[in-house]
């Protein structure tokens, strides 16, 4: 009889301990950040890196760009932020600048003798006011750019109660500001799907 009681008591203790451990774990896991677990269809840092690496490599390797450099020397290029034409997607000013600025940074680093980068006037003064510790290049008034590096992001986005999907086409263009001719154009495409889960 006593042995039975001891067994029941032990089982109960195990149950209590298990419940406590499970509860504690649940509580700890439950307190994870609101921005850690979710995933969405927006362009992210991986896209930024892949896209700009790809574009920078393609600009330098392009025969027409190389011919223009051979003819004119360093190309003075102004960089514009991305134009957002994406469906149901917002691209704030910071990321809109980052998607073209990284191309500029990569080319400044790897092909400093081929391009003279002139910052977009707004971006230049905004960064100068913020006193960020990066080389901003010459003030936009001092160098007259002949080319513009622009980018247009478009998307086909669909959302229904089960999922959201977005197909992105990110176009980069190097345009001759004098003639309006396209010297170079490149694109990056990616499709993303996010599926709804419990409590979404």
């Amino acid at each position: 009889m006593n042995a039975d009681k001891t067994e029941v008591s032990l089982t109960l203790n195990y149950l209590r301990l298990s419940a406590f451990i499970c509860g504690s774990l649940l509580f700890m896991v439950g307190c994870t950040s609101a921005v850690e677990s979710g995933h969405n269809t927006a362009l992210d840092a991986v896209d930024l890196q892949q896209m700009t690496d790809d574009m920078a490599a393609k600009i330098v390797a392009d025969p027409q760009v190389q011919a223009a450099i051979a003819k004119e020397g360093r190309l003075p290029v102004v960089v514009q932020p991305v134009e957002n034409r994406m469906v149901a997607e917002v691209l704030p000013r910071g990321p809109a600048q980052a998607f073209t600025a990284r191309v500029r940074v990569l080319l400044s680093k790897h092909a400093p003798d081929r391009f003279l980068w002139v910052m977009n006037r707004d971006a230049f003064y905004e960064l100068r006011n913020r006193e960020v510790d990066i080389d901003l290049g010459p003030p936009p008034e001092r160098v007259q750019p002949r080319y513009a590096l622009t980018s247009i992001f478009s998307s086909l986005t669909k959302e229904d109660p089960k999922r959201r999907s977005a197909y992105y086409l990110c176009e980069y263009q190097l345009t001759d500001l004098g003639s309006g001719n396209l010297l170079w154009t490149g694109s990056y495409e990616v499709k993303k799907i996010a599926v709804r889960q419990f409590l979404d």
Binding site: L25, F27, G30, S37, H39, V90, R163
Partner: peptide
């Protein structure tokens, strides 16, 4: 914008938060 990014994401409450919301208190979920 901060709110928009989470609202556009799925699986924000996956794992512990979902279980917590079901078993303990619904306010645990984001």
């Amino acid at each position: 914008l901060r709110a928009y990014e989470v609202l556009n994401s799925f699986g924000v409450n996956s794992g512990g938060r979902s279980l917590g919301a079901v078993l303990v208190d619904e306010k645990i979920r984001v």
